[in-house]
Amino acid sequence: MGVALALVVATSGCGRLFLAFLPTVDDASSGELRGDWRGPDGAQVLLEPDGRAEVQDLGGENWDFDEGWRLSGTGTWKLIKGDEDTIGGAPAVQVVITQVTDRTQRTSDDPDERTISPQEPLSEYTWEFGMERTDEGLQPYYLAGDPDVATLYQLERVAEER
């Protein structure tokens, strides 16, 4: 199961400062990223060697996460160069889902959390995963919620069956 880390910036409006402290990787290769990954709440991300991608029950990034949907579908993935739109300006894994196969709404178990209402269907969605290098290899992650008070969701590699 993916690990969620709550990252809070004490001063409002410091999103760019916050991004500067996130882990980044400048030397990632496609080969290190190929395979099955598990995200929060049982989400799955499959990165195929030929550039195809599949996600199951993966929530949206940043503010989209607050909409409460989880998306399944197929599309493509690739490594992209870092720029002002990627996490910390570092290279990222871009996953573009162009064939949505399912969309579900999260429900809240917390009575103090606002009610999540159904949203319009999505026909396409793009995630940009940051990366961290650990003892086990690369570990992609994405940010959810308000960028100034974001939650970092890590993807964990699914062990290959032998």
Rank of each mutant, 00 (worst) to 15 (best):
G2Y: 08
G2K: 07
V3R: 12
A6C: 03
A6T: 08
L7Q: 11
V8W: 05
V8L: 07
V9Y: 06
V9D: 13
A10P: 00
A10C: 02
A10R: 04
T11D: 10
S12F: 03
S12L: 11
S12H: 12
G13A: 09
G15M: 06
R16G: 01
R16E: 07
L17V: 14
L17F: 12
F18W: 03
L19I: 00
L19F: 08
A20Q: 06
F21S: 09
L22C: 04
L22M: 15
D27E: 05
A28C: 05
S29D: 11
S30P: 00
G31I: 00
G31D: 10
E32G: 08
E32W: 01
R34F: 01
R34Q: 09
R34D: 03
G35D: 03
D36Q: 12
W37G: 06
W37Y: 13
W37E: 00
R38T: 14
G39Y: 07
G39I: 06
P40E: 15
P40S: 12
D41R: 14
G42N: 08
V45L: 15
L46N: 09
L46I: 07
L46W: 12
L47I: 02
L47P: 02
L47V: 08
E48V: 01
P49L: 08
P49C: 12
P49E: 10
P49V: 04
D50H: 04
D50S: 01
D50F: 02
D50P: 02
R52W: 02
R52N: 13
R52F: 04
R52E: 05
V55S: 11
Q56W: 14
Q56T: 13
Q56N: 10
D57K: 15
L58H: 10
L58M: 15
G59L: 10
G59D: 13
G59Y: 06
G60E: 15
G60N: 15
E61W: 14
E61Y: 12
E61T: 03
N62D: 13
N62P: 00
W63T: 10
W63I: 14
D64R: 07
D64E: 14
D64I: 13
F65Q: 11
D66N: 15
G68V: 05
G68P: 00
G68T: 10
W69D: 15
R70A: 15
R70G: 15
L71G: 08
L71Y: 13
S72N: 13
S72Y: 10
S72G: 12
G73D: 10
G73Q: 07
G73N: 12
T74Y: 03
T74C: 06
G75I: 14
G75E: 06
T76H: 06
T76V: 10
W77S: 11
W77C: 05
W77D: 06
K78C: 07
L79F: 01
L79D: 03
L79N: 00
I80G: 04
I80N: 08
I80L: 04
K81C: 03
K81R: 11
G82W: 05
G82F: 02
D85E: 12
T86M: 13
I87F: 01
I87R: 03
I87T: 14
I87V: 13
G88Q: 02
G88H: 05
G89N: 09
G89W: 00
A90D: 04
A90G: 09
A90P: 00
A90H: 10
A92D: 02
V93P: 00
Q94Y: 01
V95N: 09
V95P: 04
V96K: 09
Q99W: 06
Q99T: 13
V100G: 14
T101V: 06
T101D: 12
T101P: 05
